[in-house]
Design a protein around this nucleic acid. Structure first.
Lengths: 199, 199, 199, 199
DNA sequence: AATGAATGAGCATTCATTCAT
DNA sequence: TATGAATGAATGCTCATTCAT
């Protein structure tokens, strides 16, 4: 049922985005030339502009596409889980598994997308708020079910949860050593759920 | 009794750094022109180069000077506190109080310094590791005193603590609303110490 | 029957070199702006960099291309002449005819290429030594044939020959009056062959 | 009888000129910074401008002072010699002895002073014409005394004489090997007087 | 006279974007 | 669609010169 594409153009848009992630990760957004991306994607410089309005839009699109997948997959999976604690567990693993699977993409997300307040604001506006909202909902759920303490606002708890995971990713990227990222999900969960203080 | 400085040029180096923070915060490092900084500092473009080797070095210096203050003040204060929990409390408040006091500086730290892997690596190498190390030490102390649980590695706990605070700052910066940042220290502490799960 | 070239851009590289000679001759290498050259060539500034790596390389190329022609034509013609004296005659005329035909090029060669030891050394290394060598060979030939005196080393004689011609060119360039250069070839030859002293 | 100078200021003007020759010779006029010269002369940058109006004028002064010495010494010596041939001999030796004694000065004269048509013209105007005129006079003298052939104009012969010597200097400067320059005076004379052709 | 901090005009080069083919 | 040659605006940095001290 799929529209038969013209051949020879398996998916240039996709190729450009993939190339862009690789190049942005290696050199940083501002130091990446459009010609680097085009060259990496195996096309002519001008062709980039048939698919994207500007270099700016390429980065934006990397973000949009990834975030979209991220959130929709997240929402779809979460409904299958009933326990709020299990939901948080799934989210933490999901977050670190996804970014841990594509170092270049992780770099672009952790580093490049934060390199300008402009992007940050947009980043925040579009995907990040939604993502934080997903976490917040889970926490509210836990509070309603009397499983989570209520003396912390859900949104603050969500930020803390996100911030902790985010820091795991940042450290993983900057580390000279190569190690699996996902296991840290359990560490974060342990602390987020129970706190550091001995009972 | 201090020697009265000449005229309106009490400290140009300082003026440049201050101007740079303001400009970098407003426009981002890559979009800031050296002439913007010079103009903001009330000096000629070329004068910037009498104090700094390059635009690059200006940003680096903003970071160095701030981080130095930050860490030395942190270390000096911490030795006055004996309880590990109190130390964490002081650190969280200190972190948010400092950055909450200078929005532009906070923006440069949260956004600009992370805008390139190059800076990130240096940032990480120089100040960040040390800061994380300070936190780690406190946690080890708490574990030794049997106050903190021992099933979490101190460095991971430190990262989570830092990540949570960092996220507070980032959200504060990006927020369109203006609100005091420091109070969030207690929220982070509450959760970090006791966890989200009801006992 | 040659394929009619597109539009007004028959050969941009050539146009740039031509423009550069004109501009360098008028203002000197260091006082010539790349934009002057581009403008003279009827192209955009950036286009210069599609054909040359730097302003430096433009000057180098002017030299290379000219010297190459010069030497290859010289060698090709000389083999057709058997008498060493006739060879010198042809060389002297050739030298002055060539440079006398393009005042701007002559200026670049006489003045600009000598404006820095760096260029001088390269100039010397590449083309000049070869040119001097061609003259030297002719003199050796004459000495072997017992036509030229042997109490002067061929290389020194060659330098004198070259130096005399070179001075004719320099004076011609600097002169406010316009006069034909080539006739001076015979004057140089007269003196070089027979000396100033009366027999 | 000399006016007692203030001490500490043996002769700054002289020191600057000396420093300039050294620096210009090493880096070329355009690549030499005024601060390089000042530093080499052991004075502050601004002090250069107490003695010279501009960097330009420093080079000009190097030339003026040297040329003045050159020509006045030349004229003074020549009147002591009666034979035109001996006069040429003295001139050739003088030329190569003087420049051969100060490589840096020679470089400035051979290379830097020719690096721009502007300087060339001035160079030509001021000292060079006079120098050439001195040679020309000697040749006219020789012709009048029936010692030199008359089928060559004196000025052309003078240029050839000068050009030959000049080339000796240029080659000496560019040579990687170090050798005495003055002996080439005799070679030039031999050829200039008798020609290359066997009698 | 001497200093050297400050000035600011000047310029080579880069690179995102366009557009004729 | 695709190309890639051409564009030209944009900017970090240098350095001759000035001038308050």
């Amino acid at each position: 049922m799929s529209r038969p594409s013209r051949v020879a153009v398996p998916d240039k848009r996709e190729a450009i985005l993939k190339a862009a992630v690789k190049i942005f990760a290696k050199k940083g957004y501002f130091n990446s030339k459009v010609s680097d991306i085009a060259s990496e994607a195996g096309i002519a410089d001008g062709t980039v502009y048939l698919y994207f309005k500007s270099k700016d839009e390429v980065l934006r699109s990397v973000f949009d596409r990834t975030m979209e997948d991220f959130i929709s997959e997240g929402r779809a999976e979460l409904v299958k889980i009933s326990s709020p604690a299990e939901k948080l567990k799934w989210l933490a693993h999901f977050h670190l598994r996804k970014l841990g699977a594509d170092r270049d993409l992780a770099i672009v997300f952790q580093v490049e997308l934060r390199g300008s307040t402009k992007f940050m604001e947009e980043f925040s506006e579009k995907g990040f708020r939604q993502y934080l909202d997903v976490i917040k909902k889970v926490i509210e759920e836990g509070q309603k079910a009397n499983l989570f303490r209520k003396d912390i606002t859900p949104i603050t708890a969500a930020k803390i949860f996100y911030g902790a995971l985010d820091e795991m990713v940042t450290n993983w990227i900057l580390s000279k050593k190569s190690y699996p990222l996902e296991p840290f999900a359990d560490e974060v969960l342990k602390l987020f759920m129970g706190g550091i203080a001995r009972k």
